[in-house]
């Protein structure tokens, strides 16, 4: 019996389980940061940006009308009808985990099962503004516990690498989205250059990506828009920067291809190499002058092409290929 082989469906489920948990984590941080730090001059929040960031304007307006903190928070936390809410992401992760129970550790499954069952019991008022930060912290802690349990208990075969791929691709995607939405709305108009509002918003952007303290270490002198963008996109050591994540994706994929001899990954590698080069061969000045949005948009398309290539190469979405019969 070949112990090394992994069912295509398992590979796909584990890839998506990792993505959904990463997504829940990012969303919780984004909501929390928006609540705590992102106030404008009059102390009001701008919740519109979060809705735009997830491209959910139409779905939201249909259900709630104009964005208000409580409805936005509920929409993104506990609304089971909203496919991009935290609870929907956790439910999807748990459904994947349920199918993966023969493969993953009992600890991973049990933790996710308890986490999801707890979310079902949380009353709607946990999303009210005074309770929100605590709720978000709970979500983030659970997501971190998930990563920790996975790191500490998951057997290091192919499955582990597919898990890492999912996590890194989702993380890169989330970072491009945060920068894409915030960068333009935060770019100072002539009248506001250097104002306090400006700074607190850029701080919030860094915090949304869990990068505030790391940024401070690299740039003790202060916040500067292009430096923030460079940090989030191109920094080599910050674990949520786009460059870092893509570098990881490339390294993990090589492991699958060479260590596990999954030669079908060649087509995936071609896409990964392209986006890897795109990141390695540029700098922040060039990105800004060519257009930040255009750059990030291209990266997002690249990321979704990686996933499509994986569908065909590894997840069995292709039709039966007679020649691949061993």
């Amino acid at each position: 019996m070949t112990q090394q082989s992994l069912l295509a469906r398992y590979a796909e489920d584990i890839f998506w389980m990792a993505r959904y948990m990463e997504r829940a984590d990012n969303l919780a941080r984004l909501l929390e940061v928006n609540e705590v730090f992102a106030r404008d001059r009059r102390g009001a929040h701008n919740w519109d940006a979060i809705i735009d960031l997830n491209a959910d304007r139409e779905a939201f307006t249909k259900r709630y009308g104009t964005a208000k903190p409580t409805s936005t928070a509920y929409f993104y936390m506990l609304d089971r009808e909203n496919p991009s809410s935290i609870i929907s992401a956790v439910r999807a992760a748990r459904e994947n985990a349920r199918a993966l129970r023969p493969l993953i550790s009992t600890e991973m499954w049990t933790h996710l099962n308890i986490f999801y069952n707890e979310l079902l019991e949380i009353p709607a008022d946990a999303t009210r503004v005074p309770n929100m930060a605590r709720f978000c912290e709970r979500i983030r802690n659970a997501c971190h516990a998930h990563s920790g349990i996975t790191e500490g208990t998951f057997y290091r075969d192919q499955g582990w690498y597919f898990y890492q791929l999912g996590m890194m691709i989702e993380r890169a995607d989330q970072t491009t989205r945060i920068v894409d939405v915030k960068y333009h709305t935060l770019l100072p108009s002539a009248a506001e250059v250097g104002s306090l509002l400006d700074l607190s918003q850029w701080n919030a952007l860094l915090r949304s990506a869990a990068g505030y303290h790391a940024y401070r270490r690299v740039h003790p002198s202060g916040i500067e828009p292009s430096a923030v963008a460079e940090f989030l996109i191109l920094n080599r050591r910050f674990p949520r920067s786009v460059r870092f994540c893509i570098g990881e994706v490339s390294a993990i994929l090589s492991q699958l291809i060479f260590k596990f001899q999954l030669s079908r990954g060649g087509s995936v590698a071609a896409v990964v190499d392209r986006v890897h080069r795109r990141i390695e061969e540029t700098d922040i000045e060039k990105i800004i002058s060519d257009g930040m949005h255009e750059f990030l948009d291209t990266v997002q398309i690249d990321l979704s092409e990686i996933t499509s290539a994986m569908n065909l190469a590894y997840f069995g979405h292709d039709t039966i290929d007679e020649e691949s019969v061993a």
């Binding site: 070949t2 082989s5 069912l7 001899q261 999954l262 079908r264 019969v325």
Partner: peptide, 8 residues
């Protein structure tokens, strides 16, 4: 069965 390496 469909695996990540193809059919087995």
């Amino acid at each position: 069965m469909r695996t990540t390496e193809g059919l087995e």
